Amino acid sequence: MKKILLAAFFVGTFSLSYAQSEYYNDYRRSVTDINWQTVAADLLLSKTQTNELNSLNDRYHDYNSWNRVYVNNPDRWREDRYYEIERILGREKYQKFKAKYYKGQNPTAVYNRNKNNDKRYKHMTKKSKNYKQDNGRGHKH
Rank of each mutant, 00 (worst) to 15 (best):
M1C: 13
I4N: 10
L6F: 08
A7V: 07
V11F: 08
G12N: 12
G12T: 09
F14S: 15
L16W: 14
Y18F: 12
A19E: 01
E22Q: 08
E22V: 07
N25L: 05
N25Q: 15
I34Y: 02
I34M: 05
W36R: 01
T38F: 08
A41I: 11
D42I: 01
S46R: 05
S46P: 04
S46Y: 04
L53G: 01
N54P: 09
N57H: 02
D58Y: 09
Y60I: 05
Y60G: 01
Y63K: 07
Y63N: 06
S65I: 04
W66T: 00
V69N: 06
Y70I: 01
N72K: 14
D75Y: 08
R76W: 08
R78K: 11
E79G: 07
E79T: 14
Y82T: 08
I85N: 00
I85L: 07
I85H: 00
I85Y: 00
G90P: 00
K93M: 13
K96N: 05
K96W: 03
F97A: 02
K98S: 11
K98T: 15
K100W: 05
Y102I: 13
Y102W: 04
K103A: 14
K103H: 15
G104K: 09
G104F: 06
N106S: 14
N106P: 02
T108S: 09
T108Q: 13
A109G: 02
A109R: 11
Y111N: 01
N112I: 04
N114P: 00
N114G: 09
D118C: 04
K119M: 06
R120S: 15
Y121I: 14
K122H: 14
H123Y: 08
M124S: 12
K126Q: 07
K127N: 01
S128F: 09
S128M: 05
S128K: 10
K129L: 12
Q133T: 05
Q133A: 15
D134Q: 07
N135W: 06
G136I: 08
G136P: 04
G138M: 03
G138T: 06
